[in-house]
Structure formats: structure tokens, C-alpha cells
């Protein structure tokens, strides 16, 4: 690992000042992504400002919704009573990610800023536009089985790996950000992460030095019917091939509101808005779920090695919606789906 200066900031303003003033400085949350990438020499910050002790770790009611602090750990957030009761989808998504140890370390702010797991990105001997703009994309015509089927560009076909963020996308969260001189802005979740386009080196729309203070969750009626389904190569402690956050509000069996977001398919959490539109006002039946999923996946653009993701995502949408209809009860869901697929 390259040498770097380490400091703990006494308050957010100092932290923001330090990182804004130095283009090679980074915030340090739990370090579970950044320290790993520094060991791999993929990221080379010359200065780390530890924000893990800053007082942004509260989870509290805010208006009719809930605000979750950026320095709260993933484990703390998933187990907070307000979150479990009102946003079980978020709790499930967080708990689907990584391992108990990592969730104890990982902060919410760090989770949103974690980088892709594209193996070309991780290997400094390989070309990668995200790591080193202009060197080309190793995965575009290389081994791209884990890569995107939506929204990619010739410059980058990577996926964004967070589970938590998929639920936040479905829940229309808002990211609260603070910059130098106390400048604040609110970023709707859909605008937080970005598609690669011509600048895959940028994962999201945060500017250097901007600090996430909290993530706000608006009130909703989805708690009764939501489910996070994660499909991976082993049943735990692995990144998603495809994941789905699904949430519904129904009137009898008629769908009044529906949210579907996909993970593992694009450079950002992918809101399946085509499927959502298709389902509004329809009955919550397997046939309708299937048709909605097909409508969404019609627009997929798979690469050479990831055509399987198109079929997988379609089935995952159906299963996740069924899981949500069953109240997100894990056990019933699993038993059902194995018999069906």
C-alpha cells in the first residue's frame, strides 16, 4: 500500500475542508472497500480523513419519514426498530449484503460509494476506463459474465454492486450532501449514481469533498408487502448476479402502487419503470408479473457472456413480486419458489 496521511476530523466542517482542498484525499468510513482497493493499488489516495466517528450515526424520524445517518453502520441500520418496522425492504437488502463482520464495519455513506467488483477494474495490469480513463474497457469484449445488461456504454459495462442501494432506489430515498462553506444539497436517489456514458471514472454525481450526511426515506405504505431477492453463485457472502427489490400496495388484489428495482444489471440500481407502469391497476397474478417482467427485459442489451441474466432477471422479478405479496416472509417464499422454478 502506498503511504498516506491519516487524520480524524473533530467535526464535519473540518473533514469537508480537508477533503475538498486536496483532490487526492478521501473520506474513510468503515474502510471495507477503500482499504481493500488501496491494498490492490487500485485506489491511491494520499490522505484519508476518518469520518467514522463523526456524529452522523443517528436513525430518526424526519417529517413523516425517517432519516438514516451516513456514518451509522449497515448492521446498526438494518437492526434499527424504525427501519425494520417501516422499511423492511431496506433491512432485508442490507442483510443480504456481505457478511456480519463487514456489515458491522461498513457505513451507509461508504456503502453508496463502494466501487464496482469488475475484475478488470481490480487488476491494475488490465485496461480499464474506470480505473484509468483512456486505457479501454477490458470487459467489453473480455469475460463479461458479471456485467451489465442495461445502460452500459462502449466505455464501460460494469455493474454497481451494492444491495442496500437497490432498496434505496425502490424507496425513492434522498441523499443529503454537504460541501465546503456549509453548502447543502439534496440528491434524489435516481440522480445519485450515474450511467457510465463517456465518463465511467465517475460512479456517481458527488463532487470531490462532498460529504453524505444522511439518507432520507419518505413515508410509504409498502411495509406490509415488500421483498428483497438476491440471486448469487452461493447462498451467502457473495455479490448478486441479479437482485430485485420489490414493493407493492394493493387494494384487494388490484395493484395500486408498485416499485421494482434491479441490482447487478447496470452501472446504477435499475428502476424497472416499464414493468412498474405495466402493473399499475392490474391484478397481482403470476401471469401479470410475468408479462411485466418480459416488458422490462425486452429492452435488455446483454453482452457475450451474460445473456443468462436476461432470463434470470425476468424470473427474479416474478419471484420478488410474489415474495412481496406474501409479506416478505422468507421461509414461505423459498419453499414456493423452488417448487415453481
Amino acid at each position: 500500500m502506498r503511504p498516506f496521511k491519516y487524520s480524524t476530523a473533530p467535526d464535519p466542517a473540518t473533514a469537508i475542508g480537508l477533503v475538498s482542498a486536496n483532490p487526492t484525499a478521501k473520506y474513510l468510513g468503515g474502510g471495507t472497500n477503500l482499504v481493500d482497493l488501496m491494498k490492490e493499488d487500485v485506489m491511491r489516495p494520499a490522505e484519508l480523513v476518518d469520518v467514522s466517528r463523526l456524529k452522523y450515526a443517528k436513525i430518526e424520524k424526519k417529517g413523516s419519514g425517517v432519516s438514516i445517518g451516513a456514518t451509522a453502520t449497515n448492521a446498526f441500520t438494518a437492526n434499527d426498530d424504525l427501519i425494520r418496522e417501516n422499511y423492511p425492504l431496506l433491512a432485508m437488502a442490507i442483510l443480504a449484503g456481505a457478511s456480519a463482520q463487514i456489515r458491522n464495519m461498513a457505513t451507509n455513506g461508504g456503502n453508496l460509494n463502494q466501487r464496482t467488483r469488475c475484475s478488470y477494474f481490480y487488476d491494475v495490469n488490465m485496461p480499464c476506463n474506470k480505473r484509468e480513463p483512456g486505457t479501454g474497457c477490458g470487459a467489453l469484449h473480455g469475460v463479461n459474465k458479471n456485467h451489465a445488461i442495461f445502460g452500459w456504454s462502449e466505455k464501460c459495462v460494469a455493474t454497481y454492486p451494492s444491495d442496500m442501494a437497490v432498496a434505496l432506489a425502490a424507496l425513492n430515498a434522498v441523499v443529503q450532501v454537504e460541501g465546503v462553506n456549509n453548502t447543502k444539497r439534496s440528491i434524489p436517489f435516481a440522480d445519485f449514481h450515474r450511467l457510465p456514458g463517456d465518463h465511467p471514472e465517475l460512479d456517481n454525481n458527488l463532487k470531490q469533498g462532498e460529504f453524505i450526511t444522511s439518507i432520507d426515506l419518505p413515508a410509504n405504505k409498502f411495509a406490509e408487502k415488500s421483498y428483497y431477492l438476491k440471486i448469487r453463485e452461493r447462498s451467502s457472502y457473495a455479490f448478486a448476479l441479479v437482485s430485485v427489490a420489490a414493493a407493492l400496495v394493493t387494494d384487494g388484489n388490484k395493484i395500486k402502487e408498485v416499485r421494482i428495482a434491479l441490482g447487478g444489471v447496470a452501472h446504477k440500481p435499475w428502476r424497472a419503470s416499464v414493468a412498474e407502469q405495466w402493473l399499475i391497476g392490474k391484478h397481482a397474478t403470476e401471469a401479470n408479473f410475468k408479462a411485466a417482467a418480459a416488458a422490462e427485459l425486452k429492452n435488455a442489451q446483454p453482452l457475450q457472456h451474460n445473456k443468462y441474466k436476461v432470463a434470470l432477471a425476468a424470473k427474479a422479478i416474478i419471484r420478488a413480486l410474489e415474495g412481496a405479496m406474501q409479506g416478505g416472509a422468507y421461509g414461505t417464499m423459498e419453499a414456493d419458489s423452488t417448487s415453481k422454478n
Binding site: A75, A78, N79, D81, R84, E85, P88, A91, M92, L95, A96, A100, A223, K230, S236, G327, G328, A329, Y330, G331
Partner: peptide, 12 residues
């Protein structure tokens, strides 16, 4: 505390 296989995370 809950896990991903907890039957219903809303049961606290």
C-alpha cells in the same frame, strides 16, 4: 438482530 434468512424482519 435479524439476518437475511430471518422469516420476517418486522418481528422484533
Amino acid at each position: 438482530e435479524a439476518s437475511y434468512v430471518t422469516a420476517n424482519v418486522r418481528n422484533k
